[in-house]
C-alpha cells in the first residue's frame, strides 16, 4: 500500500530543519505545491500539532492533515541525522518523519489506511534504528517497503 505513496522525490535523507516549524515547512516543500496551497497546508499541519504533537516518541513523528486545497494523498518522508525538537511525547528529538496530507474526499480511504500502515511501520522502525545508516534513497525506500511487507 505504501509503495504507491512512497516516492524518491518526496524523500529527504538529510533534513536541515532544527525546529518543528522548519521541519513541517521542509517536508511540505517536497510536494512542490503552489505557494497559496502550501501556506494553507502548513497552517493546517501547525494547528494539528498545536492540539497534540504527532511526535510519537522514539525518534519518530507522523504529522498529518486533510485539506480542501489538495486533490490527492501525499506522503513525504524525512530523516534528520541531528534530530529536530518536535515536542515529542518522550521529549526526545525526532529523526524520522512521515508526513501524510490528503484531500477531504477520499473514497478509497487511502489516508486512514496509510496512517494505519505507517503506525505499524513506526513501531518496527522504533525498535531497530537501521534507517539512520542508509544513505541511498532507493535503498531507504526498499528498506521501508520491506519492513511494511513483514507486517
Amino acid at each position: 500500500m505504501l509503495k504507491n505513496l512512497l516516492k524518491k522525490e518526496h524523500l529527504i535523507l538529510d533534513m536541515k530543519a532544527k525546529t518543528k516549524e522548519e521541519a513541517l515547512k521542509e517536508l511540505v516543500s517536497v510536494f512542490q505545491l503552489p505557494e497559496d496551497k502550501e501556506q494553507i497546508i502548513l497552517e493546517t499541519l501547525k494547528k494539528r500539532e498545536s492540539i497534540g504533537s504527532t511526535g510519537i516518541g522514539k525518534g519518530i513523528a507522523i504529522p498529518h492533515a486533510r485539506s480542501l486545497v489538495l486533490d490527492k494523498v501525499y506522503l513525504a518522508v524525512g530523516r534528520s541525522k541531528e534530530g529536530v525538537d518536535f515536542d515529542a511525547l518522550d521529549g526526545q528529538p525526532v529523526h524520522l518523519f512521515f508526513m501524510l496530507c490528503a484531500p477531504p474526499q477520499d473514497p478509497n480511504t487511502t489516508y486512514l489506511l496509510a496512517l494505519g500502515k505507517i503506525a505499524s511501520l513506526a513501531r518496527k522502525l522504533a525498535k531497530n534504528r537501521e534507517y539512520m545508516n542508509i544513505d541511498d534513497p532507493d535503498e531507504f525506500i526498499n528498506y521501508l517497503l520491506q519492513l511494511e511487507g513483514e507486517q
Binding site: I40, I56, R66, G116
Partner: peptide, 30 residues
C-alpha cells in the same frame, strides 16, 4: 482563506471524533 481554514478544522474535528482514527492514534502513541 478563512472558509478553507474552517473547513479543514471541521475535517480535523470529524477525524478526531471517529473511533477508527482514535484506534490508529492509540497504536501510534502505544
Amino acid at each position: 482563506e478563512k472558509l478553507i481554514r474552517l473547513h479543514d478544522l471541521e475535517k480535523m474535528e470529524e477525524e478526531i471524533s471517529s473511533e477508527e482514527y482514535m484506534k490508529i492514534i492509540s497504536k501510534l502513541r502505544q
